[in-house]
């Protein structure tokens, strides 16, 4: 009997811990997205040159891969997450300026933003509602991601528009898979650090937004 009480208490404390990670992740994610929006607006106002995007993405990735893991368990980790997301948002400025200058630019940006939000919220709700364990996707998503990166390297030299469209579509599929995988990891206690969980989900949202912009930008300007 005592054993039953103990296992119930353990399971409820684990559920509470999971809910706390989930709540903190979504809270930090909303704040970082808002902050990215502000730095993107600042970058647009300052009319930053196109190379800003490349420098910001490389800088953001280097900090995310080499600096963040060292500080993920301290309060400094939150500051570093804001630094990374602010930097990536700042890099988006010239990209948004370029799309805004297209005849249908405002519509493309609004649809990409709304579309990204719907995809993220829909997939998160699906993972939360089904409580399915998507850990089996790990290897598959990683191989897919590496292949799409190789294709992106090839297309830098080949410059084929259809291939670029295909790469963007595949990136959205893979990032959608990562949303399911990351959310399921939080639900099942595989990720207990909300700083790392936030940056993972932020990267998926960032990639989906950029890829949607590219797809809608190409498809919306065929006339």
């Amino acid at each position: 009997m005592n054993q039953n009480f103990s296992s119930v208490a353990q399971s409820s404390s684990s559920v509470l811990a999971t809910n706390k990670v989930l709540r903190n992740t979504y809270m930090l994610l909303s704040l970082t997205l808002l902050f990215s929006g502000l730095t993107a607006a600042l970058s647009m106002a300052l009319k930053m040159p196109p190379m800003t995007y490349l420098i910001s993405v490389i800088g953001g990735m280097v900090i995310a891969m080499f600096v963040l893991p060292r500080f993920a368990n301290s309060s400094a980790g939150i500051g570093i997450v804001f630094l990374i997301t602010g930097l990536l948002g700042f890099g988006l400025g010239p990209v948004l300026t370029m799309y805004a200058s297209l005849p249908n630019g405002g519509n493309i940006i609004t649809l990409s933003l709304g579309g990204t939000g719907v995809i993220f919220m829909g997939l998160s709700a699906y993972a939360l509602a089904t409580k399915k364990d998507f850990s089996f996707l790990g290897g598959f998503l990683m191989v897919g991601f590496l292949l799409v990166l190789l294709a992106a390297v090839a297309n830098i030299f080949l410059q084929i528009p259809a291939m670029s469209l295909m790469i963007s579509a595949v990136v959205i599929m893979i990032m959608s898979g990562f949303i399911l995988y990351d959310t399921s990891r939080i639900i099942h206690g595989g990720e207990t650090n909300y700083v790392l969980a936030t940056i993972g989900l932020y990267m998926t949202i960032f990639n989906i937004f950029i890829s949607l912009l590219q797809i809608l930008g190409i498809m919306g300007n065929d006339d």
Binding site: L54, G139, M142, F145, L146, L149, L150, V153, F157
Partner: peptide, 28 residues
């Protein structure tokens, strides 16, 4: 910019390879 983009992507692939191998081996 194209050369830097390509180099950055290749570096990213090389950095990701060990964790990709780990995930492939350990995914249920």
């Amino acid at each position: 910019m194209q050369i830097v983009s390509a180099l950055a992507l290749v570096a990213f692939i090389v950095i990701l390879l060990p964790s990709a191998r780990y995930m492939i081996k350990n995914s249920p």
